[in-house]
Nucleic acid binder design. Structure first.
Lengths: 140, 140
DNA sequence: TCCTTAAAGATAATCATTATTAATTAGAAA
DNA sequence: TTTCTAATTAATAATGATTATCTTTAAGGA
């Protein structure tokens, strides 16, 4: 199990440790863009001895190595996303919920737009939509 | 001077204080999305007695009252933007520079897209593009 | 000018994140 | 399998942005 993840670590010359596997699994399991604190809390059960510093360091490592993405938030507390496919985010102004929003058609429209309209003196690496609003009641 | 700003405060029933004027002026003057720290540093000259807590409180107040916008960043340190017109941001991956990117045509394209393609169970309030990349050398 | 209350100043407290350093362990080599 | 060593982790302290508290000040209406 975790073959993809373990392979990716090895490819990059990184050791496969118990902690790294546990933290990655936790992000996958928690879904909805957990904070470092969410991850630490969740790990308390299964791995009560993984230290806080390790979680932060490992998360950083994952971001640097394209295993996770960082999600910026309104209050500055970082959250993490295991979905690597290009996608956008829906930010709820009432709760702190962040949902993925995948929309290939929209992404294509935007990419095509920038193919035709280059930004002067700026080389685009990535484009992300932050869609702010409210989820309707009764939805999850 | 500062009529717009002073009026806006009064409209909301907020007092026009020396500190608020100074902080607002500073954000205008510094441009490029200053942090609270940038603002505090700048104010040291002209208003050495404005306290740190006041700067944070006033910035929050301005954001709540639509006089400034908060700009999320990669490291979680908040920055502030006096440009209220709808616009997007260019994030430089090499420096911490954030530039405004105004593009009415693009905004229209996106807005039209969402008029035709509603997001299920989500009411959009605002859409912002985070364009990550690199400024070419020799540019400012 | 006076009075009331919101706002500011000073300071301490909080909390997410980072740094430090000694102990542990993954994984290569023997 | 055992040994070795650098990379990794744990524990802890430190940092730094932001917030809370509480006393003093001052904006703006009467």
């Amino acid at each position: 199990m975790n073959t993809f993840f373990r392979e990716k670590l090895k490819q990059k010359g990184l050791k496969v440790t118990l902690q790294r596997v546990a933290i990655y699994d936790t992000v996958l399991h928690l879904k909805n863009h957990p904070t470092a604190e969410n991850i630490i809390e969740y790990l308390k059960n299964s791995h009560p001895n993984i230290s806080v510093g390790t979680v932060y360091k490992v998360l950083d490592l994952f971001v640097e190595n394209d295993l996770l993405k960082k999600v910026k938030t309104e209050n500055g507390i970082m959250r993490y996303d295991a979905v690597l496919a290009n996608h956008h985010h829906l930010y709820c102004t009432e709760t702190d919920r962040i949902e993925d929003y995948e929309d290939e058609e929209l992404s294509n429209i935007i990419n095509n737009y920038f193919k035709k309209n280059k930004i002067q003196k700026f080389k685009i690496q990535d484009i992300k939509l932050q869609i702010t609003g409210k989820f309707n009641n009764n939805f999850k």
